[in-house]
């Protein structure tokens, strides 16, 4: 099996574009934190963090070109963390 998706050589341009996007998002998240959005500050901060995570995972970590199993393992951990959050908060939020 030659030409595995994982052996994909990513063009330099992609890496630099992704890195620039990450820096823009960093500036954005610091900037937004200076504005008072009430409860939405944390929402925006987390949305930006998730966006940064996806950029790193998909491009730097090559998940975009990886096998389905890698997708599964990568999302499995996050899904289980979501279970931990959700069921723990199901208690605290309904006290």
């Amino acid at each position: 099996m030659q030409g595995l998706p994982s052996e994909h050589i990513v063009p330099l341009k992609v890496y630099f574009t992704v890195a620039s996007a990450l820096f823009v998002l960093l500036a954005l998240t610091v900037g937004v934190s200076l504005i008072d959005l009430g409860p939405f500050n944390i929402v925006v901060a987390l949305v930006i963090a998730v966006a940064k995570m996806l950029l790193v995972v998909l491009f730097f970590m090559h998940v975009r070109w990886s096998s389905r199993l890698v997708w599964l393992f990568a999302s499995g951990g996050i899904l289980w963390l979501a279970i931990l959050f959700a069921l723990t908060m199901s208690d605290f939020l309904t006290r």
Binding site: T29, V30, S33, D36, L37, G38, P39, N41, I42, A45, L46, I48, A49, K52, M53, V56, V57
Partner: peptide
């Protein structure tokens, strides 16, 4: 790196008016 991407807003950027 990704862990830090989350730690940064959670620990440094809590809005004072929250």
């Amino acid at each position: 790196d990704i862990i830090w991407i989350f730690l940064f807003p959670l620990l440094y950027l809590i809005h004072p008016h929250l």
